[in-house]
Simulated scan of single mutants.
Amino acid sequence: MKSNNLCVLMLGGAKRVSVARHLQAAAARRGLTLDVLSYELECSVPIASVGRVIKGLRFADAGVVDDIRHVISSEQVDLVLPFVDPAVEVAASLAGTVNAFVPVSDGALCRVMFDKGEADGWFRAHSLPVPDRVELPFGASSLPVILKPRHGSASKGIVVCRRMSDIP
Rank of each mutant, 00 (worst) to 15 (best):
Leu128Asp: 05
Val134Asp: 09
Lys156Gln: 13
Val145Trp: 00
Arg162Cys: 07
Gly157Arg: 06
Ser127Lys: 14
Leu143Ile: 00
Arg162His: 10
Arg162Gly: 07
Pro137Asp: 02
His151Asp: 03
Lys148Trp: 03
Phe138Cys: 09
Pro149Phe: 10
Ser141Cys: 09
Gly139Asp: 11
Ala140Asn: 11
Ala140Arg: 14
Val160Asn: 05
Pro149Trp: 09
Pro131Thr: 15
Leu136Ser: 12
Ser142Gln: 14
Pro131Phe: 08
Pro131Asn: 09
Leu128Ser: 07
Leu147Lys: 04
Gly139Gln: 10
Phe138Ser: 08
Asp132Ser: 11
Ser127Trp: 05
His151Asn: 07
Ser153Trp: 13
Gly139Val: 04
Gly152Asp: 00
Ser142Val: 10
Ser141Asn: 12
Pro149Glu: 08
Ile146Asp: 08
Lys148Asn: 06
Gly139Glu: 12
Pro129Arg: 13
Ser142His: 11
Val134Lys: 05
Ile158Tyr: 02
Ser141Asp: 15
Ser141Thr: 14
Gly152Trp: 01
Ser127Asp: 15
Val130Arg: 12
Phe138Gly: 04
Arg163Val: 01
Ile146Gly: 07
His151Leu: 11
Arg162Leu: 03
Gly152Ala: 05
Pro129Ser: 10
Leu147Gly: 07
Arg150Gln: 05
Cys161Ser: 11
Pro144Tyr: 01
Gly152Ile: 08
Leu143His: 00
Glu135Leu: 14
